Computed example of a mutant assay.
Amino acid sequence: MSGTYFDELYFDELAVRLREAGVPAERIVATVDDLRAYLADSGGDPEEEFGPAAAFAEHLVATTDHADGGTATGERWTWTAGIFTDQQRLNEFGEQGWEVQGIDRLGRFVCTRDPEHPQRWEYRREVVTPTGRDALTQRLAPEGWEPCGTWFCYAYYKRPHAALVGPEAKIGDPPPRPGRRLFFSPALYGFAAVAFTAAVALGLSSLAVLDRAGLDDDDGPSTLLGMAVGALSALVVIGAIAAIAELIHRRRRRR
């Protein structure tokens, strides 16, 4: 049996679980279409990407309830972007009336838009530890910012543009929902390439150092030690690159 056959079995079970949970038929179709599009881009296996269908259905129901505020009205759209362009895209789509309601387990922004009275939204991204998140939220609250999602060390905040410009924040004729769901910049692909190259180079150099130190290549522990040192060094380099990317992002935001 092909992978496509098992994919269909997975999505059939997912649809059944969502239907049993009371999710509207049109929402089930849209959700399954989104997931299929994601798999087409990632080339992954649905159970490896999303987990068991039953558990994933429960998560999707919770996310859907949160995203819609308990109703089935309004437009819904999920999308994702890289760390180099996410805030730019958020504000671009916020100008079109898209409000972020949360971030799902795939790292996608779950957005809704009021079809009758759309308004503009403004977004910001902050780097914060889990223990410092509450303090940051309290500090930003007087300026009208409220949390709308977290992803690893990133915390995202939103506020209605009406807090700044009043009635002018309303949108008379919003553009249609974008046809794309992935917004990755060349900088992100460059970052991934550099990180991968650094990991490979540091792993090989660690093994070479151990070899020059007189350790036998056939010695299992020495090989594992070299791999561990290389992996740790690669993580340090990747962290440094991510920090540099965040500094560039902050500098651009201040301009």
Results as ranks from 00 to 15, higher is better:
Arg27Ile: 02
Ile241Gly: 12
Asp211Tyr: 09
Val61Ser: 02
His249Met: 10
Val229Glu: 03
Lys158Ile: 04
Ala163Ile: 00
Ser185Leu: 09
Gln88Ala: 15
Pro160Tyr: 00
Leu188Asn: 05
Ala57Thr: 09
Arg250Ile: 02
Ala243Met: 06
Phe6Glu: 06
Thr80Val: 13
Pro174Lys: 05
Ala234Gln: 01
Ala53Leu: 06
Arg250His: 03
Ile248Trp: 07
Gly3Gln: 00
His117Tyr: 10
Gly70Ser: 13
Phe109Lys: 08
Trp151Tyr: 12
Met227Val: 02
Ala37Leu: 12
Arg76Asn: 01
Phe50Ile: 01
Leu210Ile: 07
Gly82Gln: 02
Asp134Val: 13
Asn91Ile: 14
Glu26Pro: 10
Ser222Glu: 02
Phe152Val: 10
Gly144Cys: 09
Gly172Arg: 12
Pro167Asn: 14
Leu14Tyr: 14
Thr131Ile: 03
Ala195Cys: 12
Glu116Arg: 14
Ala234Cys: 07
Ala162Tyr: 05
Gly190Ser: 14
Thr73Val: 06
Leu106Thr: 15
Ala72Gln: 09
Glu75Thr: 12
Phe183Tyr: 15
Tyr123Gln: 02
Leu35Lys: 00
Arg177Gly: 08
Asp65Val: 09
Leu225Gln: 07
Lys158Phe: 05
Gln96Val: 01
Tyr156Lys: 12
Glu49Phe: 10
Trp121Phe: 08
Gly43Ser: 05
Glu92Gln: 13
Pro186Tyr: 10
Val32Leu: 11
Val128Cys: 13
Met227Lys: 05
Arg139Tyr: 03
Gly3Ser: 00
Val127Trp: 07
Gly43Met: 04
Ala53Asp: 03
Val236Ile: 08
Gly51Met: 04
Lys170Gln: 12
Arg251Gln: 09
Asp173Gly: 08
Ala245Tyr: 02
Glu126Thr: 06
Ala53Met: 03
Arg124Asn: 04
Ile238Gly: 11
Ala198Lys: 09
Leu232Ile: 07
Ala40Trp: 05
Thr223Asp: 08
Thr73Arg: 15
Arg212Phe: 03
Ile103Asn: 09
Ala62Thr: 05
Leu140Arg: 01
Gln87Cys: 13
Val237Thr: 01
Arg181Thr: 10
Phe93Gln: 01
Thr223Lys: 14
Pro24Gln: 01
Val237His: 06
Gly179Ile: 08
Glu20Ala: 12
Arg254Gln: 07
Ile238Gln: 11
Ala245Phe: 05
Ala21Trp: 03
Phe93Gly: 00
Leu136Ala: 04
Thr197Ala: 15
